[in-house]
């Protein structure tokens, strides 16, 4: 069963084409690595898949849902429920506690606010004891775990990660990728990791290589 299907997707800013994917299909539960140099459109691809950006042309289907058929608020709501995004900068809301940073994901996706699920997710990522802390009181690695916890708390069908290993040493980079693959596996989610970091290549069975468009 296909989890993700892109056909003839192109995105342009003005006259400049920033993304061009002729064909990309991922089956449910597959772990994909999107590789390519900076500026090849990796982040744009993730935004298109997440429905944050409507491509200039082409079709995107996620878990059987054609994104073009969803409009405005429906697309936002769909994103909150189906897609989990671990952002490059692991941005957490600074004045909210770790626990509230996960609750906000449930709230904004209009999912029931389930503290047991929040605790379970934090536990799975080994940061259960930091639930009451503010992001600024955590180490870099802990913040990354919380960011991944926030991405998976709503049990997404599709887990996206943008440069999860940026600025990490080899060990940390390997651990970050392990956490993502573990979480995707335990949720049965399709994982798509965009990176220019060739170190993690060995951990993925599928690779999409983006060249300069």
């Amino acid at each position: 069963m296909l989890s993700l299907k892109l056909a003839a997707v192109r995105h342009r800013y003005g006259a400049q084409t920033v993304l061009s994917v002729e064909r990309f299909e991922a089956a449910v539960g597959e772990h994909w690595l999107v590789l390519g140099p900076s500026g090849c459109g990796k982040t744009t691809l993730l935004h298109v898949i997440a429905g944050l950006l409507r491509p200039s042309e082409g079709e995107v289907e996620v878990a059987g849902q054609a994104l073009a058929a969803l409009s405005g608020a429906a697309l936002d709501r769909w994103r909150g429920r189906v897609v989990g995004i671990a952002l490059q900068a692991q941005h957490l809301v600074p004045h909210l506690s770790v626990r509230d940073n996960l609750r906000i994901a449930q709230y904004l996706a209009r999912e029931p606010q389930d503290d047991a699920r929040v605790a379970e997710t934090l536990g799975a990522l080994g940061v259960a004891d930091k639930a009451a802390r503010k992001p600024s009181e955590l180490s870099h690695g802990e913040r990354q775990r919380v960011a991944i916890a926030r991405a998976v708390v709503n049990r997404p069908k599709l887990l996206l990660a943008d440069e999860p290993t940026a600025n990490l040493d080899d060990d940390s980079a390997a651990r970050a990728v392990d956490l993502l693959t573990e979480q995707a596996q335990s949720q049965g989610a399709t994982l798509i990791v965009a990176t220019h970091d060739a170190r993690v290549k060995a951990k993925f069975g599928h690779t999409l290589r983006l060249g300069a468009p």
Binding site: L87, A105, R150
Partner: peptide, 16 residues
């Protein structure tokens, strides 16, 4: 603005 963008990724509509 980064908080707001993150909220959008978490499923918030512009109206929210």
């Amino acid at each position: 603005r980064y908080d707001l963008a993150v909220m959008r990724t978490l499923g918030a509509s512009p109206a929210r």
